[in-house]
């Protein structure tokens, strides 16, 4: 594995921050080496500085995408933590559905849900399954829009394709849920069209302005801000506050906190879960 020199660490760390917002600990050189070493070698670079120069000079930004794919952490599973999904089922969905109930039989209200770091899609599909289980045929009375975004091209592609191997499937899904929403596809499982049709995935960098995204009723922003600097976290949750409906709900990771990061939100507890609403 190609070794990273001390003076390269700073340049590479700054570059990664610039393209992804991810703030890597410069004291952990192995993080850079294990994640970027093979890209450097594959491109015939003999140093990380050479990789950096090559990435900078690449007009198609292909190397930049490769670096983002390698550096981002895609750890996720179906129904991760379970409590946010219990919260959706028992509190948030009933409240939102009540608040957005159509005023006449000819109109449909939009209910927009955003999984802001959707990785390979498990979170958004879990939200869609929760919604489908709860509403059944009633789902058609609303215009649900479920959007998943991620900075990494690879995971957006996988999420869109909706195919999971047996290791991914074994984590978090009951046999019954698996049979209902997935079909066996060779040695893997594929999301059924009905579930796939409920969601959309696209690439999005949370460091960029949120223009064109519109307002959401529910935002999941779990376990992504932990990779950002305090300054970037403040900016991110401020933009999220701007994008959330006044009576909307924000869910962050179970070990995350907004204290000292964004005072526009107030934490609320329901059962064993915490969610945030705007003040």
């Amino acid at each position: 594995m190609l070794k990273i020199a001390a003076e390269e660490l700073k340049i590479i760390a700054q570059y990664i921050h610039e393209i992804s917002g991810i703030s890597l600990d410069q004291s952990k050189s192995y993080l850079f080496e294990t994640r970027l070493g093979s890209i450097a070698e594959e491109l015939g670079c003999t140093s990380y500085r050479a990789l950096y120069d090559k990435a900078r000079r690449d007009p198609a930004k292909k190397i930049e995408r490769q670096i983002i794919d390698a550096i981002s952490t895609n750890e996720t599973l179906f129904f991760r933590d379970t409590s946010p999904f219990e919260l959706l089922k028992h509190k948030i969905f009933p409240d939102i559905i009540d608040a957005r109930a159509p005023r006449s039989p000819h109109t449909k209200s939009n209910i927009r849900i955003w999984s802001s770091a959707s990785s390979t899609g498990q979170e958004l599909y879990s939200i869609a399954m929760t919604l489908d289980e709860l509403l059944g045929a009633q789902i058609k009375n609303f215009n649900f829009q479920l959007l998943g975004t991620d900075i990494s091209d690879n995971v957006v592609k996988q999420a869109s394709y909706g195919k999971y191997n047996k290791f991914e499937i074994e984590r978090g899904l009951s046999r019954q849920t698996l049979q209902k929403y997935f079909t066996l596809f060779g040695d893997s499982w594929k999301v059924k069209d009905q579930l796939r049709g409920m969601v959309n995935f696209r690439k999005f960098n949370l460091m960029h302005p949120f223009t064109g995204l519109g307002k959401f009723d529910i935002i999941f922003c779990r376990n992504v801000a932990i990779y950002f600097t305090l300054e970037d976290r403040k900016k991110l949750f401020n933009k999220i506050a701007d994008s959330l409906a006044d009576d909307g709900y924000l869910i962050i990771g179970s070990t995350e906190s907004l204290t000292g990061i964004c005072s526009r939100f107030v934490p609320k507890r329901h059962l064993r879960a915490i969610f945030y609403q705007k003040k």
């Binding site: 933590d81 070990t255 995350e256 204290t259 107030v266 507890r269 915490i274």
Partner: peptide, 16 residues
Amino acid sequence: ETNASGTIQHLELTVR
């Protein structure tokens, strides 16, 4: 995570 999340929830609500 479970341990940390319990502590953080408690702190978050106390601060509130």
